[in-house]
Nucleic acid binder design. Structure first.
Lengths: 215, 215
DNA sequence: ACCTGAACACCGTTCAAGT
DNA sequence: ACCTGAACACCGTTCAAGT
């Protein structure tokens, strides 16, 4: 909001990472609809068009942001069997995505060819190879697992901490879960729903892994 | 673009359906990013704010549009077994969604409580009941199947007829599939990819149905 | 009830210019 | 190379007014 007080000609010293960090922080506060180039620039104390020194356009910034959010997904221990390893990896991926509920939606509509997305795919392929699944069938299994994991996270994201849209449907959600009225029930609704989500996610994942094992 | 030549005070006679039809046609031509209230109004020969007589805001229009697109999904024959029926229904749903590739993304991020979405869920529940799956486990299975189906369609949509974004990544897609250069290979890439998608979708679906059967 | 005119507060992006 | 000023062509939405 407030420019950082620089003399004319003085550099702000942004860099791509600073822009991405600002964009992520902004989306956490204002949601996906509040994520604009101008507001990111504002947050950095910089003119709107300054961002175009680092990203060709808004789409390029979003692509970079999504890949940036995949950094640091917990990898399963190397001595685990392929099935437990894949289950742990997909669960960790879902948890990681849910840390940024506002941005999950974007993943489904974008290619996902960033370096971190590719690395995740490679780890999955090495686990599948240990199951004896390689080549085209491995790519097929990988795709199914990724769609399930990202789709699941995208589907439960609106129920999570999305600031504005959540408020819109919060009432019907509570009613749907029979938790309207009693505030103690409402306090339980969140954790209860999350637990149900965890169980449901694990169930579908188990079915898919059983299918992969049966190849 | 051109107003329909009405005298001042004369009605345009829009109605919700006319607005939805215009919105759908516009998104087919201009993609999701080209779908604006002003352009929908323009297409109807009406002032931008006239739409607010029928929809509270753009989000309400989008919600109605998504449910409207679920109309007419092919239902499986009543004498089919539950497994074949569910497989056919989910395949028909995916095909139906892919007829509007530009809008699929929106489904994942929105609740989906419209009348048509609810009807689809009821048909699924009745098929699951024939498999002996009812109550909470049925809701769990339904959710997993829907996430898989919608997620899959959302994931392959960008490869389909999305006008602008497709052009952006068309080159890398062709290279990825090893179809760069030779125009005969490029002509094959589309149908080939679609066939691979069909097979992959059916495979994952079979795995999930096997899991449901094993309950 | 349905629609228009005019306005408000925003967008993404480009171009020329400054250091 | 990095950043600013100013401008362009857009947005969604609201308010008052007309029929």
């Amino acid at each position: 909001v407030k420019k950082h007080e620089r003399r004319p000609g003085e550099r702000a010293g942004l860099g791509r990472d600073a822009v991405l960090a600002a964009a992520q922080a902004l989306s956490a506060e204002a949601g996906i609809d509040g994520l604009s180039m101008r507001r990111v620039a504002d947050r950095l104390g910089v003119a709107p068009n300054a961002l175009y020194s680092y990203f060709a356009d808004k789409a390029a910034l979003l692509d970079a942001l999504l890949d940036w959010l995949l950094v640091g997904i917990e990898l399963p221990p190397a001595d685990q069997d392929w099935r437990g390893g894949l289950a742990a990896l997909m669960a960790a991926t879902r948890r990681h995505l849910l840390a940024h509920p506002h941005l999950i939606t974007l993943y489904l509509s974008r290619p996902g060819r960033g370096p971190n997305a590719i690395h995740l795919g490679e780890v999955m392929l090495s686990l599948l190879a240990r199951a004896g699944v390689t080549g085209p069938p491995a790519v097929e299994a990988l795709r199914i697992l990724l769609i399930y994991t990202f789709g699941f996270a995208a589907h439960e994201a609106p129920r999570r901490g999305d600031p504005d849209p959540a408020a819109r449907t919060a009432g019907s959600e509570a009613a749907f879960r029979g938790a309207s009225g009693d505030p103690r029930m409402q306090a339980l609704a969140g954790p209860l729903a999350q637990h149900a989500d965890d169980v449901t996610f694990a169930t579908g994942l188990r079915w898919l892994l059983a299918g992969i094992a049966g190849r």
